[in-house]
Amino acid sequence: MAEKQAKKELTVKKLRDKGVKPREEVIEMAKEQRKIIKQISECLKAGPKTIPEIAFEINMPVGIVAWYVLTMFKYGQVEPGEEIDGYYKYKLVAKGGGK
């Protein structure tokens, strides 16, 4: 097992050792993405909400929130519930219940 772990870490570490580093923009982007997903998840802990309701609550453009919520749906992190006036309410999927 230890040997397998060592082998698994080898290629990414070797590439880093060669001086290849991730781009700064990617690291910043990933941080921003984590923050947005956390905000959406925290917001949904209080109960199911539509995309505009989430956007209003976390004070973020609705187009951006839509992209993240629908991507979270793709990865099984949220699921749609009832539809009201053309908008679905989304709720968090319990851990282990994703796709």
């Binding site: 539509t50 609705v62 187009g63 839509a66 919520v69 749609p80 053309g86 679905y88």
Partner: peptide
């Protein structure tokens, strides 16, 4: 399709 229903990308509304 990537979404669970036919929705508009801007806010997830069912487009009428």
């Amino acid at each position: 399709r990537p979404y669970h229903a036919l929705l508009r990308p801007g806010d997830g509304k069912v487009p009428e």
